[in-house]
Design a protein around this nucleic acid. Structure first.
Lengths: 228, 228
DNA sequence: AAGCATTGTCAACACTTGTACACTGAAATT
DNA sequence: AATTTCAGTGTACAAGTGTTGACAATGCTT
């Protein structure tokens, strides 16, 4: 599953003289990417991944149907590749947030703003993750769940290191809290991406609601006392 | 959409003498139900609604494909009927909870237990609602959202009447809180229904996590102060 | 009792789908 | 320079799809 790299090590005199580099494996990965992008694009047009067909995707990618098999055994395998890609996108979100640091005056509102901008920048990936998280095939749901759990744990770790919450919270508790935060934000992503365009008013209300929800969660977190 | 009742009022000598009542409209609604059940059953076997076909459903229902059109214009319309059915199931949940009253010693854990039992009793409906809430067709997502919003508002009303939270909370705030509660419980339903069977350990941990999350939310709610 | 309305059936249609197999051309290996 | 490997092509097929139209049976109306 991970490490489909072959070894492809030696790399003799491959990408030699012309501008467009041409080593074979690279070309392969490129059209593989074309397939993934085609799937995402179709989802962007309102289709759900589950309803996509192999032929539809190769058509969109400008390939002949049978080429599909050179890259994926079936649609489920392509879906798993998309999950992996999406997982990477999630990590990058945390990494960037960590680097930039959050606005200190209103951490939560700032975070939500940054988050939603990020969601929009990668809206196809989020469309896929949020849409298939509960509706997709068993294998894909499972994979997404794993990815989201990892994300949650990383977030918990970050919060601990940045001391954003009282540090007497047990690790389990912290994870539980982050689970709530993450599911809320995935929910938010789904709602926002589903909004009819150019509805600034509705959008603002939605955002404000999610800001409040997160405020509530963090308020609860600061008051939390471990059970007896 | 609502009120497909025709008038069917007069009801001459219809359900006359035999045990099985046979009035025409009744028969129709019965096979209509068979179609809905067939769709739900197929989902229960791991398929997602979006991936179901009209033929598949009539086959499962023991009908010929063309009969489908006597009841629904297309799959989307059947989906909307399922949403309506699901919405009804949600209301019943609130109604029963209201009637039974909650255990006073540990309201939250009790509620979660009752809720999850209810989810299991109607697992097909929840499978559908939770699964298509973010992944289905635009029309279906919209309908589910409406239904969930209504549910949320009813819940807010109940909480207010039962004085389960400090009554100085603004209506908006209360709805915001209930929104968080509802999305958390839908999330819970999705997780629980996706659990491999006979995994009592995992299940218990999951439940405990959701109990804690709701505790956190209510803790935050009792501490909430309206913004300036 | 006669006529109308409507649920369900049957046969057929034009497509689309996933997959198999043989083939081509060029990159990679020898 | 000769040979092997393999991403991408072309053709073909069996199976499944949504939809049409004409028809049968039976409940409902008058």
């Amino acid at each position: 599953m991970a490490g489909t790299e072959k070894k492809r090590g030696s790399a003799t005199a491959a990408q030699a003289h012309e501008g467009t580099l041409i080593t074979r494996g690279e070309r392969k990965q490129r059209t593989r990417g074309t397939l993934l992008d085609a799937a995402l694009k179709l989802m962007g047009e309102g289709r759900s991944f589950t309803s996509l067909g192999l032929r539809e995707i190769t058509r969109e990618a400008g390939l002949v149907p049978t080429s599909f098999y050179r890259h994926f055994r079936d649609m489920d395998e392509l879906g798993l590749a998309l999950v992996e890609e999406g997982g990477l996108t999630l990590r990058r979100l945390l990494r960037e947030a960590r680097k930039d640091g959050m606005p200190v005056d209103d951490i939560i509102r700032g975070s939500v703003r940054v988050y939603l901008q990020y969601v929009r920048e990668h809206h196809l990936q989020f469309l896929f993750i949020v849409g298939e998280r509960m509706g997709g095939s068993a294998a894909i749901r499972r994979a997404i769940r794993t990815e989201v759990t990892h994300f949650t744990n990383e977030m918990a770790q970050d919060i601990q290191q940045l001391r954003l919450l009282p540090r007497e919270l047990a690790t389990n508790t912290l994870q539980m809290i982050c689970g709530l935060v993450v599911s809320t934000m995935l929910n938010a992503a789904g709602d926002i991406l589903d909004l009819p365009p150019k509805q600034a008013q509705l959008e603002h209300e939605l955002i404000e609601q999610y800001v409040q929800q997160l405020r509530l969660v963090f308020l609860g977190a600061t008051q939390w006392r471990e059970k007896a």
